[in-house]
Amino acid sequence: MIRADTSRSGPPGDVPGLPSPWVLARVTGPSMSPTVRHGDRLLVRRGDTAAPGDVVLARFPARPDLLVVKRVVRAVPGGHWVQGDNPFVTDDSRSFGTAVVVGRVVGRVTPRPGRLPAPP
C-alpha cells in the first residue's frame, strides 16, 4: 500500500526554508509504480487544485488515518475519484470511495529526477 509519510519534527511535513504550503511526502508501497516508486520523496503543494491526470496527496473519509498518493481520475460530489497507476493494487477509490485532495504533487525530490527511467 502506498502512503505518504509526512511525520517530522515541527508541523507535519513542513519543508524547512520553504513557505508553509509546501510539504515533503515519502512514498511507501507499489500502487503508483512505475510513475512513483517506494522510497521516493515528493514535493507537494497543499491546498492546490487538482484536475484529472494530476498526482495528488489525498485522504479517504472512509479511512481518515490513510494518507495516499494517487492520480485524479475525475471530480465527483464530495471530492475526487483517485486511482493508483499500478493496476494490481486497488487501495484507492475502487476500495474506499471518494477522496479528499490534500495537495498536488509538483515534483520528485529524491531520488533526483533523471536518475530513474522515465515513466512510459
Rank of each mutant, 00 (worst) to 15 (best):
Met1Tyr: 03
Met1Pro: 01
Ile2Cys: 03
Ile2Asn: 08
Arg3Glu: 05
Thr6Glu: 09
Ser7Glu: 14
Arg8Ala: 14
Ser9Val: 05
Gly10Asp: 04
Pro11Arg: 15
Pro11Gly: 09
Pro11Ser: 13
Pro12Ser: 13
Gly13Cys: 12
Asp14Arg: 05
Val15Leu: 04
Val15Phe: 01
Val15Ala: 07
Val15His: 01
Pro16Thr: 12
Pro16Ser: 06
Gly17Met: 06
Gly17Glu: 13
Leu18Asp: 10
Leu18Thr: 06
Pro19Ala: 13
Pro19Asp: 15
Pro21Gln: 08
Ala25Ile: 05
Arg26Cys: 02
Arg26Lys: 07
Val27Ala: 14
Thr28Tyr: 12
Gly29Ala: 08
Pro30Ala: 13
Pro30Ser: 11
Ser31Gln: 12
Ser33Pro: 00
Pro34Gly: 13
Thr35Pro: 02
Val36Leu: 15
Arg37Asp: 10
Gly39Pro: 12
Arg41Gln: 15
Leu43Arg: 00
Arg45Pro: 02
Arg45Met: 12
Gly47His: 02
Asp48Val: 00
Asp48Trp: 12
Asp48Cys: 04
Thr49Met: 09
Thr49Ile: 05
Ala50Lys: 05
Pro52Gly: 02
Gly53Phe: 06
Val55Pro: 02
Val55Phe: 09
Val55Tyr: 08
Leu57Asp: 06
Ala58Glu: 08
Arg59Gly: 03
Arg59Ala: 07
Pro61Asp: 13
Pro61Val: 05
Ala62Pro: 02
Ala62Lys: 12
Arg63Val: 09
Pro64Asn: 08
Leu67Asp: 10
Val68Ala: 15
Val69Tyr: 06
Lys70Cys: 09
Arg71Tyr: 07
Val73Pro: 00
Arg74His: 07
Val76Met: 05
Gly78Ala: 13
Gly79Pro: 07
Gly79Ser: 07
His80Trp: 14
His80Thr: 00
Val82Phe: 02
Val82Ser: 00
Gly84Pro: 01
Pro87Thr: 04
Val89Ala: 11
Thr90Ser: 11
Thr90Phe: 01
Asp91Gly: 10
Asp91Cys: 06
Arg94Asp: 14
Ser95His: 08
Phe96Leu: 01
Phe96Ile: 03
Gly97Asp: 05
Gly97Val: 10
Gly97His: 03
Gly97Trp: 01
Thr98His: 04
Ala99Cys: 13
Val100Arg: 14
Val100Tyr: 04
Val101Arg: 00
Val102Met: 10
Gly103Phe: 01
Gly103Ile: 11
Val105Ile: 14
Val105Pro: 02
Gly107Lys: 09
Thr110Asp: 04
Pro111Ser: 15
Arg112Gln: 15
Pro113Arg: 13
Pro113Glu: 15
Pro113Leu: 11
Gly114Tyr: 14
Arg115Gly: 12
Leu116Tyr: 12
Leu116Thr: 10
Pro117Leu: 09
Pro117Phe: 11
Ala118His: 08
Ala118Phe: 10
Ala118Asn: 05
Pro120Asn: 12
